[in-house]
Amino acid sequence: MMAACSTAFTSRAADAMAAPPSAALRTRPGSLASRRGPLPGFGLSLGVALFWLSALVLIPLGALLLRPWELGVSGLWRSLSEPRVLAALRLSFLGALTASAVTLPFGLLLAWVLVRDRFPGRRLLDAMVDLPFALPTAVAGLALTALYAPNGWLGAPLAALGVKVAYTPLGVILAMAFVGLPFIVRTVEPVLRDLPREAEEAAATLGASRPQILWRVVLPALAPALLAGFAMASARAIGEYGSVIFIAGNMPMVSEIAPLVIVTRLEQFDYAGAAAVGLAMLALSFLLLLALNLATRFWRPV
């Protein structure tokens, strides 16, 4: 009762204080400006945010949306339904999803070790996680290629076992996993750090075994973060260019990724065709991220 009264009082006081400046702004009832929160400067910050979003994201994306239609609907369809384009799109998207799915458990394990264990060199390991962020992607690509080429340190023994990594879709997935790892580690880590140990101890006193605690208590609490990390890693891998093209070998229909198709078309002055592939990637990425976002919401019950 007391609390209710005092909240009501504070909000009325806030209304009174906010009234003079906003009266001038308020042109129509129900417009954005009339829906005031307790924090000042909402209108201004919204304006600045929208401006930046437009300048950096919406306008370039708008241009991308418009450009391919120069080809006409049927031209666009023809441009995209080339088998080589379809194969490249399939490799980019399925490769990215596979790479992120494979990285997910390892990223979780790495985050777990960084948060829960104390061992010499932990800080060094912690710093190394971010290296794929910082390294020029071309450098990473060259290093991976040298390592996994049929005569490389790892490529040679693998080749002896009959596993070919470089210049195959497997190589593409490897490079994608490399760039995606920090996204997963860094999204899971803070959530894991905030996870109260007591919940796990409570589960233990209630008779749960270690795997049961992991499955029923820890993983559900981490699920939203894992999904978010998966989404970011996938998004990064879909658009990844530099680190993939060296190891991919870029054989049409086999190991050619969609971004490379775009570059190839640009080099042939087929700007509309390049934009068409870009548009397809944009649409597919949007659908993927939307689906993952909805899944995250499903996992986070409130």
Binding site: P196, E198, A199, E201, A202, A203, A204, T205, L206, G207, A208, S209, V217, P220, A221, A223, P301
Partner: peptide, 18 residues
């Protein structure tokens, strides 16, 4: 702990949030 069958109530309840 899991074989002791003891009821333990934590200071901050430690309920499973999800």
């Amino acid at each position: 702990a899991r074989r002791r069958g003891i009821g333990f109530v934590f200071q901050n309840y430690a309920l499973f949030r999800h």
